[in-house]
């Protein structure tokens, strides 16, 4: 009732503005999807429907290889980030120590520093340590920029904890370790999952930092970036379309899990 009264009908101007905004946001994406089905390799004219782009894509061994590298990289760095992040967050929450505030604050620095700077920093560090650039250096770099996001997400959950809940578990006979596995970690799960999803998406499409430390391990974003510098072929459109679908799927999953847990936990 109230709502209806307060909302005025949209004027023509507002409607056109809204349409323009959405067009501006989504037209390029829609164009990519349409052109991925183009029969001829052209980004100017649509010359009939075909799935040739997708077929070429799946025959491009180098591209697929880099894709698997990126998936492996995302999974490994996310697993490491989540394990480290979870333990670090629980530790920082549970124990009091000197400079806790400072250490908390330092966590945000990798989030705000330009990626370019981080990339250069890693390049210098790994060179100094005489490390061979490759998968390992990629993992280290990715964990470093994923970890803060994981911690921030888990910490958002842990902050709302009633410390009595963990005490209740111990009171009922659970040792410290059992309390961790039966109570603390399950209660953190929604934060862990959303942290992991953010970590995966960040790692999957990282171009700037990776390009400093990839050595001979070609990652997908670096490969794609290389491909589009010349002529944009249909398989790149196809690839982009698949990535759009994949990203939306991950995002939808994150939303779903969040909703599911909110309902279950009543928060």
């Amino acid at each position: 009732m109230n709502r209806k009264k307060n909302q005025k009908p949209l004027g023509m101007l507002s409607i056109s503005l809204a349409c323009l905004t959405y067009l501006f946001l989504y037209l390029p994406i829609i164009m990519i999807i349409i052109y991925s089905f183009n029969a001829k390799e052209s980004n100017l004219v649509f010359e009939g429907f075909s799935i040739q782009g997708y077929l070429t894509l799946f025959q491009n061994a180098v591209l697929l290889d880099s894709f698997w590298n990126t998936v492996k990289l995302a999974v490994v760095s996310t697993v490491i980030s989540v394990v480290l992040g979870t333990l670090a967050t629980i530790g920082m929450h549970r124990y009091r120590f000197k400079f806790k505030g400072l250490i908390n604050g330092l966590l945000y620095i990798p989030i705000v520093i330009p990626e370019l700077v981080i990339g250069i920093a890693f390049l210098v560090t790994f060179a100094l340590a005489q490390m061979q650039m490759g998968f390992v250096t990629l993992v280290i770099a990715h964990v470093t920029f994923c970890l803060p996001f994981v911690i921030v997400n888990i910490r958002a959950r842990i902050a709302g904890f009633d410390p009595a809940i963990e005490e209740a578990a111990m009171d009922l006979g659970a040792t410290k370790r059992r309390t961790l596995t039966r109570v603390t970690i399950p209660m953190l799960t929604p934060g862990i999952i959303s942290g992991a999803l953010i970590s995966i998406t960040l790692s999957l499409d990282d171009l700037v930092i990776s390009s400093f430390v990839y050595g001979r391990t070609m990652t997908f974003p670096i490969k794609v970036y290389g491909m589009v510098r010349g002529k944009i072929t249909t398989d790149v459109y196809a690839l982009s379309t698949l990535m759009i679908v994949g990203t939306i799927a991950i995002y939808a999953m994150a939303q779903f899990i969040q909703k599911h847990f909110e309902k279950a936990h009543g928060q």
């Binding site: 009595a164 809940i165 005490e167 209740a168 009171d171 209660m187 799960t189 936990h265 928060q267």
Partner: peptide, 14 residues
């Protein structure tokens, strides 16, 4: 061998 009832219940939410 004692058990506690906490003021804010402290039930396991999950």
């Amino acid at each position: 061998d004692v058990n506690t009832v906490f003021q804010n219940y402290a039930l396991f939410p999950h």
